[in-house]
Write a protein that binds this DNA or RNA. Structure first.
Lengths: 159, 159
DNA sequence: TTCCGTGCAAATGATTTGCAGGACT
DNA sequence: AGTCCTGCAAATCATTTGCACGGAA
């Protein structure tokens, strides 16, 4: 489902000029949905090696301002980016000890978020919602001592 | 209210050794509640110049693992840290254009978050919840073009 | 012709780490 | 002794920026 078309339309309505580079970045981002900046740069360069790293970041900033992309810093490995536009809202639950990350949905939250934004006169574009805790295994395993959490690449653990 | 005592107790139950440096970092963090890493380092050094920057970061990591501190990266100025332990849960609403940040409470969310964590067998320690959108002013001002957002120091705008 | 977007490379900002000496157990 | 913690400084990682050029409005 060519969602990148919707994103491009949204950008146009915001008065953002769509260059070849930006189009490429948008398409690759939408293809991934979850990615680190490094992955996106590598991937974009695979299609067009001439695209500069800076351009990818600049486009990412644009997408964030347009409410298309969110940045998640779980403190495990590099931060990762997520395309939240035109996607069912979902949230993250992370084990602070082993680094497991569970992505889940809670439809009842959405209207409440809308309402909260409205209460302050805001037009809601996107959100991030992260719950931190201990997974069952880690509760049993490490009642006492905190383990140095392993370095996980986020793309391995995001469901 | 000397909340740092509670934090120290919590750390002890987790088997974390409390050194002078860690105690100092904890106290200053609890005194601030909101701070950037730079502020915390500067403040800790004001009390004891010998404490190394690395030690502050290492302690911060410890506090995060214990569910005492959260890191917020709003993409405006440096990331900021927040002591969430023993504090009424609250959430953030940020204008993606002018950088305004509103801190608000929504008590109904807490039990739902607990329930979500429980559903996956997690023991909930802390959370971050950020809503991104356009504030009233920016909706009217910048219907079309996205403004380059000003660089704000987070401590100026967090309520 | 005036902006705007880009590539490139260097700069910056935040955080982490290797190492050697001390302290705690 | 053996492990944990620290200060220091250098390294790393992610991201941003200055500059000069080319293309679009």
């Amino acid at each position: 489902m060519k969602r990148f078309v919707e994103v491009e339309q949204l950008l146009r309505t915001k008065g953002v000029r769509l260059t070849d580079q930006r189009r490429l970045v948008v398409r690759r981002a939408v293809a991934y949905l979850h990615f680190t900046s490094e992955e996106l740069v590598r991937d974009v360069k695979a299609f067009d090696p001439s695209v500069a790293r800076g351009t990818v970041y600049r486009t990412l900033a644009l997408l964030h301002q347009a409410g298309v992309v969110e940045k998640h810093d779980f403190r495990y490995g590099p931060p990762n980016y997520e395309v939240t536009f035109a996607k069912a809202h979902h949230d993250h639950l992370m084990c602070i000890r082993c680094g497991e990350i569970i992505e889940f949905q809670e439809p009842r939250w959405e209207p409440m978020q809308e309402a909260a934004a409205k209460r302050y006169g805001y037009q809601l574009l996107s959100h991030t919602h992260k719950l931190y805790g201990l997974c069952g295994t880690c509760q049993r395993a490490g009642a006492k001592r905190l383990a140095k959490p392993p370095r996980l690449h986020v793309e391995e653990v995001v469901a």
